[in-house]
C-alpha cells in the first residue's frame, strides 16, 4: 500500500500569504507538495463553511494564512476576524470528531517565502502523524463531478 500523503487546502489572502507563497517559488524553496492554495482577497473572507466543505470533501488538513497581526492586514482588521473564526471552528471540529490540529492559522508576509514553506512542512508532518481525515469517505462523492 502506498504511504499516506495528506491533502491540505490552504486559504491564502491575496496580499500577504499568497504573495509569500510566490516568494517561496521565486526563491526556489523546496517544501512538501501537499498543499493546494485557494486565493481570497482577505483571510477575513474565510466563511467557516469553506473549512467544513474542505473536510467534508476529504481534505486531511486546512491552513488559513493571512497578514501579520496586528497592523499588516490590507483591510485593517480582517486577520483578527479570521483568527476568531478559526478558534471557534477548532472547537466545532472537535465535536465533529476531527482533531483540531488539522486546522491551523498562520501569518505570512509577502517576503516570508521561507516561513510559508516551513509552515507547510510542519502542518504536513503533523497530519502525517494524525493519519487520514476520519470523515473521508463518509460523504458520497457521486454528485461532485457535476
Amino acid at each position: 500500500m502506498k504511504e499516506f500523503e495528506p491533502k491540505i487546502v490552504a486559504f491564502c489572502c491575496n496580499w500577504c500569504a499568497y504573495a509569500g507563497a510566490d516568494q517561496a517559488g521565486l526563491s526556489r524553496i523546496q517544501y512538501a507538495p501537499n498543499v493546494r492554495i485557494v486565493r481570497m482577497m482577505c483571510s477575513g473572507r474565510l466563511d467557516p463553511m469553506f473549512v467544513l466543505e474542505a473536510f467534508k470533501s476529504g481534505a486531511d488538513g486546512v491552513l488559513v494564512a493571512g497578514c501579520h497581526t496586528p497592523g499588516d492586514c490590507h483591510y485593517l482588521s480582517g486577520n483578527f476576524k479570521a483568527e476568531r473564526r478559526v478558534l471557534l471552528l477548532k472547537r466545532l471540529l472537535e465535536q465533529m470528531g476531527i482533531e483540531p490540529e488539522r486546522l491551523r492559522i498562520e501569518w505570512v508576509s509577502a517576503s516570508e517565502g521561507a516561513k510559508f514553506a516551513q509552515v507547510v512542512n510542519e502542518l504536513t508532518q503533523k497530519i502525517r502523524e494524525l493519519g487520514p481525515n476520519p470523515l473521508k469517505g463518509a460523504f458520497s462523492n457521486s454528485s461532485q463531478n457535476r
Binding site: K7, M49, F50
Partner: peptide, 14 residues
C-alpha cells in the same frame, strides 16, 4: 461562496 466552495470541491474530488 459558490465559487470558493466549488474550487475546494474541485481540488479534492477524485
Amino acid at each position: 461562496d459558490e465559487q470558493l466552495r466549488s474550487q475546494v470541491k474541485g481540488i479534492l474530488v477524485e
